[in-house]
C-alpha cells in the first residue's frame, strides 16, 4: 500500500444546491501528515464525511487504503474525530467509551482490555478511565475522543478542528502526540494554522469548492497573496512583519 487516499473527480452537492466540492483530485500517501485549511463553509467537513462514507458523492471516485469507499459500511481502519467531542462521547465511563469501537469490531474481552490500557497510556489518560467523559474538561474530553478512535488502530486518522477548544497545555500535548505517531496517515482540518504548521508536512487549501493550493505548509501559508485571496491570514510565525516586530 502506497496511497492512503486517492480522490478522483470528486463532486458533491446537496440536492438542489450548487456543489460544495467540485472535481476534486488529490492523493495522500501512506504515512503523510496533511493539513486541510480554508475559510468557514469551504467544505472541509463535507470532504471528511465523504471519505468516511457517511455521505455519498454526487460523482467521482474515492479510494481509501486501496479500497473503494462503500458508504454505510464500517471500516475501523479509518477513524474520525468530530469537531464537537460531545457528538462522540456517549458512554457512562471513559473506559467504556474507548471500548466502544473495539467491541463493535468483535474483539474478545482480553484484547479490548489490552487496547484500552495501551491507548490510555499513550494519550496519558489512564487516571481518567473510570470517570464519566461528560464531566471532564474540554482538553481531557478531546484526548478521550482521540483514544476512542486510536483503540481501533486506524491507519487513516481524520481530525476536524482538533484544537478549537484546547488551552495551550492540551494543545501542546496533542501536537506532541501527533508528532510521535508513526505508521498512521493524518488528515486534519484546522483554522489553527500554527498547529497545522507544526503538525503537517503538506497542506491543502480548500475554497470555492476547489483545492486552490497543495504543497509545502510554510510555502503556502507564508504566501500573503494566496492566503488573503482565499480569506485567510498568514500565521504570525511566518509573517515578515511579525519577525521584524520581534527583533
Amino acid at each position: 500500500m502506497t496511497d492512503a487516499l486517492n480522490i478522483s473527480d470528486l463532486t458533491f452537492a446537496y440536492p438542489g444546491q450548487s456543489p460544495v466540492l467540485e472535481e476534486i483530485n488529490c492523493t495522500i500517501k501512506a504515512g503523510e501528515k496533511v493539513g486541510l485549511i480554508g475559510p468557514n463553509g469551504a467544505g472541509k467537513t463535507t470532504l471528511f464525511l465523504l471519505i468516511t462514507g457517511i455521505i455519498k458523492p454526487s460523482s467521482g471516485q474515492l479510494i481509501v487504503l486501496d479500497q473503494p469507499v462503500k458508504p454505510g459500511t464500517f471500516n475501523p481502519a479509518v477513524g474520525m474525530i468530530f469537531q464537537h467531542t460531545a457528538d462522540q462521547l456517549i458512554s457512562p465511563s471513559v473506559r467504556e467509551d474507548i471500548a466502544f469501537g473495539p467491541q463493535n469490531m468483535g474483539l474478545n474481552q482480553e484484547d479490548i482490555r489490552a487496547r484500552i490500557k495501551e491507548t490510555a497510556e499513550l494519550t496519558g489518560i489512564t487516571s481518567l478511565l473510570d470517570r464519566p467523559p461528560h464531566q471532564l474538561s474540554a482538553g481531557e474530553q478531546r484526548l478521550v475522543a482521540l483514544s476512542g478512535i486510536l483503540a481501533m488502530w486506524p491507519l487513516l486518522l481524520i481530525m476536524d478542528e482538533p484544537t478549537s477548544d484546547l488551552d495551550i497545555r492540551y494543545r501542546r500535548r496533542l501536537i506532541k502526540l501527533l508528532a510521535n505517531m508513526t505508521g498512521k496517515t493524518l488528515f486534519v482540518a484546522s483554522h489553527d494554522l500554527e498547529f497545522v504548521l507544526e503538525t503537517c508536512s503538506r497542506v491543502l487549501l480548500l475554497e470555492g469548492s476547489h483545492i486552490q493550493a497543495d504543497g509545502d505548509p510554510a510555502a503556502i501559508m507564508g504566501s500573503e497573496n494566496l492566503m488573503e485571496k482565499h480569506g485567510l491570514e498568514v500565521p504570525h510565525s511566518l509573517s515578515a512583519t511579525w519577525h521584524r516586530h520581534k527583533k
Binding site: V78, M80, D87, I90, S91, P92, F100, G148, M152
Partner: peptide, 29 residues
C-alpha cells in the same frame, strides 16, 4: 444525528436487540 453517525463510524449498527444499550447511552448523553 451526529452522535449516531459518530457511533456508526466506530462500528455501531442498530440491527439487533443488543443495540439497546448503546442507544440508551446515546439517549442519556
Amino acid at each position: 444525528r451526529r452522535m449516531r453517525t459518530a457511533a456508526r463510524l466506530r462500528g455501531f449498527l442498530a440491527n439487533s436487540l443488543s443495540s439497546l444499550k448503546p442507544l440508551a447511552y446515546i439517549t442519556g448523553s
